[in-house]
Design a binder for these strands. Structure first.
Lengths: 208, 208
DNA sequence: GAATAAAATGAATGATTATTCATTTTATTC
DNA sequence: GAATAAAATGAATAATCATTCATTTTATTC
């Protein structure tokens, strides 16, 4: 066999494509069933491969879920950070973060289901990863709040608690939307929710 | 055997006592492990009975978890309703609800862990029950908000969303406390959190 | 198009664990 | 304190799935 870099790249590309296909299928199955309720057989079926083939691409089930959560971690945070980058004002950054989050969750409902509904009850490595994502989001929020506080635009209160309250209020609305389809139009209520939180953190600007 | 009502009562009491003991043990095990991670063997060990004995008191694992969630459902909501009953003012009722919730969760940390961390990821009947509890709490909150709105004490906004935001902010803080031990003193931050939410809903009273 | 290598297959394995049941232990009755 | 009934036991059963591996299929090379 002649050594051929072009071919090698093609082969690994093909492998990657198949791996991605498995990941895509797994996300779908996992979004509808819990971790334990998701069988490799079901994932393989959805990906149109044999169960054994799965193990050519992933060492085991845990590695798969780990990769799914990790991927989502980056998709979500990268998107949020990209959207935030368009603003410098603290309030604007907060708003951009949440709008990005909601926009992505509407677009990728499976991601929302996995991150907010399915993974949280599994008590192992993924939960640690999940907590990492949430902490990162809370950290971003807290940074904005600290900035606003130092500018004297919000009252002097524990910004960590405020950040938790802010994130928590959105999370609850999103979870309700996922589980019960209410509110029907998630994007629409975003305004009400944002107003609630801006008042909550004590926005004292005379803007608008 | 002579028929003897006193004895009969004693026997059923003993049965109930044992059932309660199993429930108590199960709560402990379940709070530390996920639903799937909780084995009947482990529960039996903690309750100091043989695994087979478990099935004399519960038809199966699902029935047990169901009963645990149901029990907690009533413990929590009864307590909240009792505390609320001491107040007539909408804001006071809201505050009493949340203070009751937090007080109970501090006192019975296992309950909080099971209701907020362990059960949510299990996708079956318990989740339906769990959603019921949450809906009930949100309904109570919404009622208070509607009352306040009709009195012109908060601005005219979607009270359902406001109720979700209110409950969600507390939930997030409690979950963070359970998972990461921060904030250390949950009761203390309750004030900050309550202030946040009162501002959020647009409390326009000039009380204090 | 034969020979070789790479991928894919899915039945078999093995580990786990809920549930059962034949047996033993404990309690009750006379 | 027999005789009987009620409770408790834990090894055996059965079902579920993640994982493996001998075999087959497909692709690649000359």
């Amino acid at each position: 066999m002649t050594w051929c870099i072009g071919k090698l790249i093609k082969v690994t590309e093909k492998l990657q494509t198949k791996k991605k296909e498995i990941l895509r299928a797994a996300r779908e199955v996992f979004a509808e069933n819990s971790y334990q309720g998701t069988s490799i057989k079901a994932i393989a079926k959805k990906a149109k491969i044999a169960t054994g083939t799965f193990y050519l691409y992933f060492t085991n089930k845990d590695a798969l879920i780990n990769m799914i959560v990790e991927e989502m971690f980056h998709e979500l945070l990268d998107y949020i950070k990209r959207e935030r980058a368009n603003y410098t004002d603290g309030f604007d950054k907060l708003q951009a973060s949440m709008e990005a989050c909601i926009k992505l969750f509407i677009q990728e409902k499976n991601m929302a289901k996995i991150l907010l509904v399915q993974v949280p009850g599994v008590n192992n490595a993924f939960n640690v990863k999940l907590i990492e994502i949430e902490n990162e989001l809370i950290k971003l929020t807290k940074e904005d709040l600290d900035e606003l506080k130092s500018q004297g635009r919000i009252p002097d209160e524990d910004t960590f608690i405020t950040a938790l309250a802010f994130v928590g209020s959105f999370r609850q609305v999103i979870i309700n939307w996922l589980r019960q389809g209410k509110p029907e139009n998630l994007e629409e209520v975003c305004t009400t929710l944002m107003k609630y939180n801006l008042r909550g953190m004590g926005k004292s600007d005379v803007s608008c």
